[in-house]
């Protein structure tokens, strides 16, 4: 077996990064930007913002931030994309992003992980509601913690 130099190893990792970027991040972010554009044009973003304003205020966030959490639940990449889109639209600030980041992952991609993790590991389905609840509570507590750090 030929021995790899550290440079080779790094390049292997960077190549993985490129693949993740092109095959996952780019499509996810593009989808999220298109989705936010739809919500903006239809006025739904403002409506969601008003509707969830009081709830999200608990976490020091504007109501529009609810879309980040909704996106995350479907896919982490989607949540990050929505967050990025709201940031470039100046609806979220850097500290808002900091509050949201742990939550994006803690409740992220659950719809996919139900099959990929819980299904694969053969977890009894009667525990599914508890597992979902734990993840969402994790995310909510994390936002409260980050509120005081960010």
């Amino acid at each position: 077996m030929e021995k790899k130099t550290l440079a080779d190893v790094f390049v292997d990792g960077a190549r993985k990064g490129w693949n993740v970027g092109v095959s996952s991040i780019l499509p996810n972010v593009l989808m999220a930007f298109a989705l936010i554009q739809i919500l903006k044009v239809t006025g739904l973003l403002v409506l969601l913002g008003k509707l969830f304003g009081p709830v999200m205020a608990i976490f020091g966030l504007p109501g529009e931030a609810i879309t980040v959490l909704m996106g995350s639940w479907l896919s982490m990449g989607g949540g990050v994309g929505v967050a990025a889109s709201l940031y470039t639209a100046k609806l979220l600030t850097g500290s808002h992003l900091s509050i949201l980041i742990p939550a994006i992952f803690l409740m992220g991609s659950q719809v996919q992980y139900m099959g990929r993790l819980l299904g694969t590991a053969a977890v009894q389905t009667r525990y599914y509601p508890m597992l979902f609840a734990i993840s969402i509570v994790n995310a909510l507590i994390a936002m409260l913690i980050m509120r005081f750090i960010a």
Partner: peptide, 9 residues
């Protein structure tokens, strides 16, 4: 992303 995953590798 490329930098981060390169370092992790």
């Amino acid at each position: 992303v490329m930098l981060a995953l390169g370092v992790v590798e």
